[in-house]
């Protein structure tokens, strides 16, 4: 029984940490452009297919294909997204941009479907998938490594934002772009960095989750929704909030499916969302006044 609890908890934390990576992306884009990127789920789905293009069309080794996928993701989902979608549309208002990201999500989804078929595709695991024995309990090594890697990325990102000059400039830009500019911060560059980081996080989440979920054009629909809810539950304007929200949903989902009901597990994030909106609208770690990285 203990072994089962340990495995379920571990699986929940591992999946939750990947949700957290995606949820952090929501928070970052909110900070940079004051908009919600509803194509975020597709931003996680696409990099896996870019890796498959590297593997199957350019015959790259796995590490080369992963680098190719990461590079292309940063270019397409970071730089090009900012230049071609956010910059031209943002002056027309946040709602217009939200609608544009919904359209972008559909475009990415349907393009992948057209180009790579509607069928799921196998995706190589970057981590070992054999189980290991911990105190008599056989648990998944892949889950442990997924969790450590995701948390490591979050720690590095937090250190970068808090301990480096560029990171602090990005925070200043998020809090008050006008004042930051007066103080000599290159606001446009900082906003670009935010989009690039979001794209890189989405790509890393993609590489970790796709070996289990399989590469499929529709993967972004569920992932995007759960990560969006995780960001709200944790606090939309806080990176640590997104982390808490992601982990919470991952763990609760697995615990409920194992010990309460598997049939209604899909409803759990929505129930959590309703509770948070009723009890603490700013999210578990969010602040009511708004924006601070």
């Amino acid at each position: 029984m203990m072994s089962q609890f340990l495995q379920v908890l571990l699986s929940g934390l591992a999946t939750g940490s990947i949700y957290a990576l995606v949820a952090i992306g929501f928070a970052l884009v909110w900070q940079a452009a004051q908009t919600i990127n509803f194509a975020q789920g597709e931003f996680v789905m696409l990099p896996a297919f870019l890796v498959l293009v590297g593997l199957n069309y350019f015959d790259l080794p796995l590490w080369g294909a992963l680098l190719f996928g990461l590079g292309m993701s940063v270019l397409i989902l970071g730089a090009a997204f900012k230049k071609l979608v956010v910059e031209p549309i943002l002056p027309h208002g946040g709602i217009t941009l939200v609608i544009a990201t919904i359209a972008l999500g559909i475009l990415i989804r349907e393009s992948v479907k057209e180009f790579y078929s509607a069928e799921g595709q196998p995706f190589p695991s970057v981590l070992p998938s054999d189980p290991i024995n911990i105190f008599g309990a056989v648990v998944s090594l892949q889950d442990i490594l997924n969790l450590l890697l995701s948390l490591g990325i979050v720690v590095l990102l937090t250190l970068f934002l808090n301990r480096t000059r560029t990171g602090r400039c990005m925070q200043a830009t998020a809090q008050n772009p006008a004042v930051a500019e007066i103080l000599g911060v290159d606001v446009k560059r900082m906003v670009l960095y935010t989009f690039l980081i979001n794209a890189a996080l989405a790509a890393l989440a993609s590489f970790l989750i796709t070996p289990v979920y399989l590469a499929k054009f529709s993967n972004g629909e569920t992932l995007g929704l759960i990560a969006f809810i995780a960001a709200i539950v944790g606090g939309f304007n806080q990176i640590r909030g997104a982390l808490v929200g992601g982990l919470l949903i991952g763990v609760l989902d697995n615990l409920v499916a194992t010990y309460v009901t598997a049939e209604y597990r899909a409803a759990l994030p929505l129930i959590l969302l309703i509770l948070i909106i009723l009890v603490r609208p700013q999210g578990i770690l969010g602040t009511p006044e708004g924006r601070a990285v």
């Binding site: 194992t258 598997a262 049939e263």
Partner: peptide, 20 residues
């Protein structure tokens, strides 16, 4: 007796129930 949903992606709890 472990049901799962169509297009479900996460089978961690299903497998752990069977294992147990």
């Amino acid at each position: 007796d472990v049901p799962s949903e169509q297009a479900q992606t996460d089978y961690a709890s299903d497998v752990s129930k069977l294992k147990q």
